[in-house]
Design a protein around this nucleic acid. Structure first.
Lengths: 249, 249
DNA sequence: AGAATTAATGAGTAGCACTCATTAACGAAA
DNA sequence: TTTCGTTAATGAGTGCTACTCATTAATTCT
C-alpha cells in the first residue's frame, strides 16, 4: 500500500474513476435483472434507474438510450455464455461430448435467460452494415465455438463432412432455440436430455440402427440376424404409428 | 337477384353488417401492411388509423389494443400460410417432395414477412394457460401439416422413425428460421435450395453414401440387437406415457 | 317521421423515453 | 485548507404514444 503516490484512500472512499465504473456496472446489472424478470417491453427506464440507485437522467450519461442499454445487456450475456462454452468444451476429450456439452449448455442458458435472448428479435438491427454490428460480431464469436468443434471433429474423422458447415451450425442452434419453446410447454428436464442426444446424433450422422433404406441392405436372406432385424423393423413401424397418434391430436 | 326480401341494395350501398366487416378488414390489412414495412415497434396506432381511413378511436372498437391488433395480424398470417402449406403438400406425390415443398414454402414466407414473424417474439404470451392461447393453437395447426407428412412418410416406410416426432419437427422448423437469419446476411437464392435439400436429407435420414464410416457397420451383427433394444426402450416410454395419460394434453 | 340503437369521432389523459438547465462532487493548484 | 475549473448527477420539463370517453353521426325499428 505504499508506493501509489501520496493519495490516501480508505476502502469506502472510491476514486472518481472507480465510482464511474461501479455506477456503470450497477446500471447494467440492474437493467439485466429487470429485463430478465419483466421483459424489455414492460421495463421502464425509471425502474432501472431506481434499482441502480441513480436518477433517471444519469442512465443517459452511460447509455445513449434504452435500446443501447438492451444491447449492452445482450452483449454481456453473449460474453458470459461464450466464455463458459469455451471453457466447457476444453474439458471434453471427444467430439461427441463436446457437442453434447454445447447443446446442453445452450439449452439451459436460453431457457434460464430467455427474456434476454428475446432481445435478439426485439432490438432493431444496427443500421450501418449489419455484418459489422457489435451484436453480429458477438454472435459470431459465440457460434465459432461450435464451428471449431465441428471442424476438429471432421478433421479427426469423428464426424462425416457431408453437410455444409454453416448449415450444420444453423441446424444445431436453430433446433435448440425452437426446441426451447416446445420444452417450456412440456415437461422440462426429461426432454432436455432427449433433445440433446437426438440432435447430436443427427449432427454426427450417427444414424444408429436405421440404415435399412440403404440399398446394400435390401433383402438379405436367411439367418437369425435377419429375422430379428425384420422384427425390429416391424416393431418400429408400429411404434411410430402409436407414438405419433398419441402426441398430436 | 329476386328472392332476397324487399331490400333494395345498390352495389355501392352496403348494409350495416357489410360496412362493419369491411371496416374490420380495412383496419386489419392496413395494420398488416404497416407492421410488415416498419415493424411493430415503430408503427403508431395513428398511422394505422390513417391508412385504414378511420379515426384513431375507431381502432379500439374493433381491437382491444395495439397488441390485439398485432395478434390478429399474426393469426391471419398463420391462416394464410397454413392453407398454402396444406394445398402445396397435397399436390406432391412422394414424401421427399412434400418435405422439400414445406421447407421451401416456410423459408420463403418467413423471409418475405419476417417482420410479421417477429411478432411471435414481441407479443407477450397470453397469460391464461398458454396452451389454450389462440396463437399457440394456430401454430399447432400450422406445424401439424409437417407432422402429418412425417407420420405418413414413416407409415409408408419412406422415413426411418428413429427420432421422436416432436423433436424432428423442432429440428425442421427451428433450422429453417435460424437459417433465415444467416441467409439474410449471405446471398439469398442459392443458399435457399442448399438449406432445403440438406435439411430434408437429414430429416429423411438419407445419409448418402458416407455411412460406411459408422461404427455400427463395422460389425453388422450389432445392428439388429441395437434396433431391438431401441424398440424396447421406446415401448417402455410408450407404456409409461399411456399410464400417465393426459399429461401431454 | 321520430325514437332507439349502434357506430364513429377526436380532443383529452396518463405514462413513457428522453433532454437540459441547474446543482453537486471532485481533484489539482495556490 | 481554500479556491476554482472540470466532470458527474439531478429531476422537473417535453414531446410523443397508446388508449379513453363524452359527444355526434348513422342506421334500423316502430
Amino acid at each position: 500500500m505504499a508506493a501509489r503516490s501520496g493519495q490516501k484512500r480508505q476502502p469506502a472512499a472510491l476514486t472518481r474513476r472507480e465510482k464511474v465504473e461501479s455506477r456503470e456496472t450497477a446500471i447494467l446489472s440492474a437493467a439485466q435483472k429487470i429485463f430478465a424478470a419483466r421483459g424489455y417491453g414492460k421495463t421502464t427506464t425509471a425502474e432501472i434507474a431506481a434499482a441502480a440507485d441513480v436518477a433517471e437522467g444519469t442512465l443517459y450519461l452511460y447509455y445513449k438510450n434504452k435500446e443501447a442499454l438492451g444491447r449492452a445487456v445482450l452483449a454481456d450475456f453473449y460474453r458470459r455464455v461464450t466464455e463458459n462454452a469455451r471453457r466447457g468444451v476444453e474439458k471434453c476429450p471427444a467430439t461427441r461430448e463436446k457437442l453434447e456439452f454445447l447443446a446442453r449448455h445452450h439449452l439451459k442458458n436460453v431457457i434460464r435467460e430467455r427474456r434476454i435472448i428475446e432481445l435478439v428479435y426485439i432490438l432493431e438491427r444496427e443500421m450501418d452494415s449489419y455484418e459489422g454490428g457489435q451484436l453480429y460480431q458477438m454472435n459470431r464469436a459465440y457460434v465459432a465455438v461450435f464451428d471449431n468443434v465441428l471442424r476438429e471433429g471432421v478433421a479427426r474423422g469423428e464426424i462425416d463432412a457431408t453437410m455444409t458447415p454453416w448449415i450444420t451450425r444453423d441446424i444445431f442452434y436453430g433446433s435448440l432455440e425452437y426446441a426451447m419453446r416446445s420444452m417450456l410447454i412440456r415437461d422440462r428436464q426429461k426432454s432436455l436430455e432427449q433433445v440433446v442426444s437426438e440432435l447430436v446424433d443427427l449432427v454426427m450422422r450417427k444414424t444408429s440402427p436405421t440404415e435399412d433404406n440403404h440399398p446394400s441392405f435390401a433383402n438379405r436372406t436367411g439367418d437369425a440376424a435377419d429375422r430379428v432385424l425384420d422384427a425390429a423393423r416391424r416393431l418400429e413401424r408400429l411404434l411410430a404409428a402409436q407414438e405419433t397418434k398419441g402426441e398430436y391430436k
